[in-house]
Every structure is written in C-alpha cells, then in structure tokens.
Design a protein around this nucleic acid. Structure first.
Lengths: 135, 135, 135, 135
DNA sequence: GTGGTCTAGACCACT
DNA sequence: GTGGTCTAGACCACT
C-alpha cells in the first residue's frame, strides 16, 4: 500500500493517513478483511513516527472502519461497505456533503463540473452524453 | 434568515452557523451583497451568545465569503460565486470531495444513491434518464 | 492622479486609497501643498461611491497627512515630508518596520533580496555592486 | 521567552503577541520546531487572560507559522523560514512594504536613515561603505 | 447601533 | 496538562 502525504498541508498527518486509507478501501485497493501494515512498518515507509500512524489507526477504529488486535495487528472490518442500518450515519454524511456542495457553488465551481467530477470519481469514467472533461 | 442548529452535535456551533450560511448563499436564500443580521441579533434569534456568532462571521470573512464593516455590519461579498482564478481552491475542494465520496462508499451508501443525492442537491430534481450507475 | 485599486482584496477600499495616496506623495507625484481631486470626482474616476473616498481622506486628515477645507477641498499638508520632531512617530514606524522585516524572514524571503527591494524602492535603482535582481 | 507588550497601544494585545513571536523567530530566539509556552502559562507571564494568548496563537497557526496540538501545545513549524513557492506571498509582502516605505518618507524620515535601519535590522550591523543614498 | 477587544470562568476532549 | 468551546459582561471606536 502506498500513501501520498503532504507534510506541508494544514491537515494533520494522522488525518491524511486516515483519509488516504478510507480512499484506498473505497477504491478496492484495500479489501474488507484485509491486513493493514503494522504501524511501525508504515511509519518507516512514510518516514514518519509510528505514533502518528497509531493515531490514524485509532481514529479509523473509533469510526468503525478497522479492527485492531494487539496480536494480529489492524485489519479492515469485514463488514465495511455494508449499510450500517443506522440512519444517523446517512443523515450525517448528507449534511456534510450538502455543505461541501454549497462550498463549491460559493467558490464559483460550475455545478455541471461538480456533478461530472463526482460521477467520474464514483464510476471512473465521464458521462457519455457530452463530455465536460474535454471542454 | 432562519438557521437550524444542533446543539448536541460534535460540530462546534460557530462552525454550524458558518456552514448553514454557506448553504443559504448556495441556495440563493442569501444573495450576493445581501445584509446578514447583526451578531447580537442573530445571537438572540438562535438563543446563543453573540460571541459565538461573531466567531462564525470572522470565519466567513477570512474565507472571503462575507465582508464585515464595523458600522454597517456584515454583508455577503458581491463577488461570491465567482471563480477565484486560484487553482489551489479547486484542487483543495476536489481532494476533500474525493475523501467524502470515499467515506460514503465505506459506509455502505450505494454509489448510484450518492450520485443521485448530489444531482438533486445541485439541480433540485432527480435525473430523468434512469440509473446513471449503469450507463 | 491615477490610483490602481484591487476591488477583490481583503484590504478595504478606503484603506487602499489612503495607501496609494501616501505612495503618490512619497513618489513626488503629489507634492506638498498640492490639491487632491474632490471626493466626488475621484469617486467617479475610480467607479466607487464618493463616501468611500471621503473615508480615505478623513483617515489621511487624522494622520496629519492632508488638510480638508469645506470650501477649497483637500490639499496635501505643506509640512508633509518634514520631520515631525515627535520621537513617537519614528519609534512607532520602526516597530512596525521591524515586524514587517521579521515577516519577510519567516516567509523565507532572502535577506539580501529584501534589502535590495528596499534600496530600489527608495532610490529607484539597484545597488551597483552585484545585482541580486538579475539572479 | 520574554515579550514586551504595550497595553496602551492601539494595536490589540493579541496582535502584539503575534508580532513579537514573529520577530523572535526571525531573530533566532525561537528556532524552527521550538516549543512555545502554553497559552495559560504565557497568560500568567504577561499578566493577561489566556484567551488573548490563544487568539494570538490561532492567528499564527492560520498564517502557517506555528502548529498547535491539543495535547502537546504549540510549536514553531519546522518548515518556517523556507520559501513557500507561493508567488502571492512575496507580491503581498512587497505591496505592504512599499506602503510602509512611503509612510516613512511622508513622515520625514530620511531615505538614507531608512535604508540604514533596514540593513542594520536585517544584518545586525551598519553598512561599512559610506552613504548608500549617494552611490 | 455595529463589530472588536479583553476579561473571567466553566466544561470538554484528548483532534 | 493542553488547547477548544461557550457563556457572560464590560468598554471601546466608529476601521
């Protein structure tokens, strides 16, 4: 697993690691049940302190995305990507997504471009009926 | 202007106020150039301290979304919703949006539902041409 | 007199007008005792409200840089550019200048470049002994 | 770390704290990566409320000069004093510096004295080669 | 009448 | 032990 970090970003490193792992799971790079590298190993790979990796893993654990076992290390939860049945999760995500879409609009990003970006990110290819990506 | 706050949320109240105002601008409820209520007035309306409102306004000001004048109060910037010409803004937004879409997937929200939610939020009505996930 | 404003800047317009006038006086474009355009005329020239120009003039008046006479309009004070004999003025300027030089250093601007910029701005040409402006 | 404040100044205390810390970093008194005192401790030292210190730290954080960690406190960013690669930063600094140099001139500070002050502040000793204003 | 600043104290998470 | 948040109240300039 390779993660790209931006050490100069305002976003804390442990948060970036958490975000990149969530993206790796969504992309299928990390499957449900898969082992994560040990905190020490990932720390070496990323040239950062393993405590920072631990913080990221702890965050993912508290979010219910991974499981941590002292002996066998961290694994992606087998039931990840499955609807939680908790309506609160969806409601919370939608509220945050609504804010993010509003930000795009307020920043002047055209709505059509935003929708196309979302479609491409989700499904990996642009809409076939007129391709805004080539404008 | 009416804003709904969740006092029990983990999200700070000042951040919620900021988010709700961004959404109100995106929705057209607050137009470019429109007056915002005074910090003390909004504090009374929301039954919170005016300092908390002030913090939200300060955030919006620093983000370039509103202007604050000591005498005449706060207004939505006239040039809001216009592209900044700053590529960094778009890049940053897209990075955050990518993480948010990954979260939806990891939480088990179907991709087609996510796209439909985005389309409806942006354009106010669902797609008329069937399931976009299967094109 | 031509002033260039940045309407999108975070700096208030009246402050920008004030700054540009101070620079025009320093550059000799506006001499001691010279008439300033009327607030209405400058407002038309800059395509802004004349009240904003009035605010800038009022600021300059309070700073002791111009005089405002209801009948004859605004003029650059005849004694501008002359030492005030008030040690506080120098001390205050030096404190602010020290902070600004510290900011350049903290931002990573090379000290030699900063000195060269100051020299060129003050005297209109670079140092003759090695020209950092051509690196 | 000792900071001198002027409680009677028009400049807000939190801004003065911010300015003095920037100067301390430029002077090398505070090195990249160094710990800052806790907000409460510095508040006690300066005999002011810790909220005021907190506001100064928040300003420095948003400027990218320090990092704040809820657990371990505030530290000078390790990459401070390194060019940001953001041309906007330099342009903005130069615009502000130009205004400040114009102010010195308008106030009657001799240009040669201003240049000498800048040189001494930057390099710690005056020019050895005579009057730069006459080269 | 408006926002800005500062003080003071409380409670909170651990980011 | 640290910073973050929120409340409450005072005084200030007019930016």
């Amino acid at each position: 697993m390779h993660l790209t970090l931006d050490l100069d970003s305002e976003t804390p490193i442990y948060q970036q690691i958490r975000d990149r792992i969530v993206e790796a799971i969504a992309d299928g790079e990390l499957e449900a049940g898969a082992d994560l590298p040990s905190t020490r190993q990932l720390g070496v790979d990323l040239a950062i302190n393993f405590h920072t990796v631990s913080k990221a893993y702890d965050l993912l654990r508290r979010e219910g995305i991974i499981r941590i076992n002292r002996k066998s290390g961290a694994v992606v939860r087998p039931d990840v990507k499955q609807p939680s049945g908790d309506a609160g999760t969806d409601t919370d995500w939608k509220r945050r997504a609504r804010t993010m879409l509003a930000e795009a609009d307020v920043r002047g990003l055209p709505k059509a471009d935003v929708l196309e970006f979302v479609r491409t990110t989700l499904f990996g290819f642009p809409d076939q009926g007129g391709d805004p990506g080539e404008r």
